[in-house]
Design a binder for these strands. Sequence first.
DNA 1: CCCTCGATCAC
DNA 2: CCTCATATCGAGGG
Length: 366
Amino acid sequence: MPPRVVLHVDLDYFYAQCEENANPKIRGKPVVVCVYSGRTEESGAVSTCNYLARKYGVRAGVPIVRAKKLLESVDAIFLPTNRAYYEEISDRIMEILRTNADAYEKLGIDEAFLDVSSRTGNDFDLGRDIAVEIKKQVFAQEHITCSVGIGPNKVLAKIASDQTKPDGLTMVKPEETEQFLSSLPVSRIPGVGKKAEERLTQLNVSTISDLSALTPTLLIEIFGKSLGSYFYHASRGVDNEPVKEREQPTQFSRIATLKQNTREPEQILPLLTELVTSVAAKMKEEGITGKSVAIIAILTDLSIHSKSKMLESPTSETRVIENAGRQLLEEYLQQAPGANLRRVGIKVSALTKQTGQTDISKFLSG
DNA sequence: CCCTCGATCAC
DNA sequence: CCTCATATCGAGGG
């Protein structure tokens, strides 16, 4: 079998680029899109920023207060996220991507994998033509630039798209794999985050070439069966995961910050109800019900705890989820006497798509 | 094989 | 000073 031709398309600094298009006057200035937590005027963190802001050290996740300090000497623009707006734009772009692929897999609001093996006859140069065409179409229609990686599989395509950006195009042909990967830091492998990188550093492993020298046995000992074997293969540029469209989400969750730290249900429940209402509305919109309900508690020390339970039957009813949430919260507060909550969240999982057909369980039990 | 929970990643 | 949403894994207990 000839190698596949896989594209990874990454929309550049997506939220901030959407904002630049919505208001061209802010172009040429640092643009920082923020999630305001509502605790104080400026509490919260950076979601995305443009490359000009990055020059000053601003990054996703940086506290807004710190970003303002980094940018105090310049005329910078700070904006709240407008997620529904970005989703509209993303949906239209994803439609362009889908029509340019044999198989399509959306990874998030701003990235997707495309398999173009069939329509290129496994010719990488034709794959590059498609990438150029996609960039052209996306920019012509939405004025959004993107960075595209082309490789024989998903891992290589994704590492490639990260290589040159913004507005980049990087192709790694199968025979170029080893040369391309060898000197890159291990952190460039998707799935290697802060923790994995730390553990690898302890083993004197810093480049992907270093990583490829480790035995699968050792990797599995350290990282477990799944991740260990994935690292073993990824370090060699091997990845057989198909490009496969994600059907439905497997969970719906919402989380928010309390006005003040507390363990008083009277202070927590109103917010929890808001979150439940929002999650239930989204589930009804999508015609999906869920059987597992969880509350998430983030304490003053930022540690994360959760408590979940299965319902009698799947639901998208606000009151049912709310009742379960309230009960879980009370149980949690009892079992964690010292817990002081900073943030609270709700999650519904074990989802079922409502088909409109008679539920088989009713049929069986009736 | 199912449930619960924490950890990790990455946005 | 520290947002938000989702997927996946592994351990531990049934």
